[in-house]
Amino acid sequence: THFTSQQLQELEATFQRNHYPDMSTREEIAVWTNLTEARVRVWFKNRRAKWR
């Protein structure tokens, strides 16, 4: 999946605040970024792996 810079900005900003967002937070992010909750969940999983 290719993310727009706007989507990445929103995802990264949320990641800085919370590395493990809950389901409702992921659903909110999905609405803001026009992505599915599953895409958001996978992005956070991959981002945490990169962060370690």
Score class of each variant (00 low, 15 high):
Ser5Ala: 13
Ala30Cys: 05
Arg17Ile: 11
Thr25Phe: 07
Ala30Asn: 02
Val42Phe: 11
Phe44Leu: 02
Ala13Cys: 14
Ala30Pro: 02
Arg48Ala: 04
Thr33Gln: 07
Val40Tyr: 01
Asn34Pro: 02
Ala49Trp: 08
Val31Ala: 14
Asn18Thr: 08
Trp43Thr: 00
Arg41Lys: 09
Trp32Tyr: 13
Arg47Leu: 04
Phe15Ser: 00
Thr36Ser: 09
Leu35Val: 07
Pro21Cys: 05
Leu35Ser: 13
Gln16Phe: 07
Thr36Arg: 01
Val31Pro: 00
Gln16Gly: 07
Tyr20Met: 05
Val40Leu: 02
Lys45His: 10
Thr4Val: 03
Arg26Cys: 06
Arg39Asn: 10
Met23Ala: 10
Gln9Lys: 12
Glu12Ile: 05
Ile29Asn: 01
Arg48Leu: 07
Gln9Pro: 01
Leu35Phe: 02
Arg26Trp: 05
Thr14Cys: 15
Val40Thr: 00
Gln6Gly: 08
Lys50His: 09
Ala13Thr: 08
Val31Ile: 13
Lys50Asp: 07
Asn46Ile: 12
Thr33Gly: 03
Thr1Ala: 11
Trp43Val: 00
Val40Arg: 00
Glu28Lys: 14
Tyr20His: 07
Arg41Gly: 05
Trp51Ser: 07
His2Ser: 12
His2Ile: 09
Arg17Trp: 09
Val31Met: 13
Val42Ser: 12
Lys50Cys: 09
Leu35Arg: 02
Asn18Gly: 06
Lys45Asp: 06
Gln6Pro: 05
Gln7Phe: 04
Met23Arg: 15
Ala30Lys: 01
Leu8Pro: 01
Arg41Phe: 06
Val31Lys: 15
Ala49Asp: 09
Arg48Pro: 00
Asn34Met: 08
Phe3Arg: 03
Arg26Ser: 02
Val42Gln: 14
Gln7Ile: 07
Met23Gly: 05
His19Pro: 14
Trp32Asn: 15
Thr36Ile: 05
Leu11Gly: 01
Leu8Val: 08
Arg52Gln: 09
Val40Cys: 00
Asn34Trp: 05
Thr25Pro: 00
Phe44Ile: 01
Lys50Met: 11
Arg48Asp: 01
Leu11Ile: 02
Glu10Gln: 15
Gln9Ile: 12
His2Met: 11
Ala13Met: 11
Val31Leu: 14
Ser24Lys: 15
Gln9Arg: 12
Val42Cys: 15
Gln6Tyr: 13
Trp43Ile: 01
Arg41Ala: 10
Ile29Phe: 03
Phe15Asp: 01
Ala49Cys: 10
Trp51Tyr: 09
Arg39His: 11
Glu27Thr: 12
Val42Trp: 14
Ser24Met: 10
Met23Glu: 08
Val31Tyr: 13
Arg39Leu: 15
Ile29Leu: 12
Ile29Gly: 01
Thr25Asp: 08
Ser24Asn: 11
Arg17Ser: 08
Asn46Gly: 07
Arg48Lys: 02
Thr36Met: 03
Thr36Glu: 06
Trp51Pro: 05
Asn34Gly: 15
Glu10Arg: 15
Asp22Leu: 04
Gln6Ser: 10
Arg52Ala: 09
Met23Tyr: 14
Lys50Val: 10
Met23Pro: 06
Asn34Val: 05
Ala13Asn: 09
Arg41Leu: 07
Asn46Lys: 13
Asn46Asp: 10
Arg17Asn: 09
Trp51Gly: 07
Lys45Tyr: 10
Phe15Met: 00
Thr25Ile: 08
Ala38Glu: 13
Glu37Asp: 03
Ala38Val: 11
Ser24Glu: 12
Arg41Glu: 07
Asp22Lys: 06
His2Thr: 10
Glu10Trp: 15
Glu37Phe: 03
Lys50Ile: 13
Arg48His: 05
Val31Trp: 09
Ser24Ala: 14
Thr33Cys: 12
Thr1Phe: 14
Glu37His: 04
Leu11Trp: 02
Arg47Cys: 05
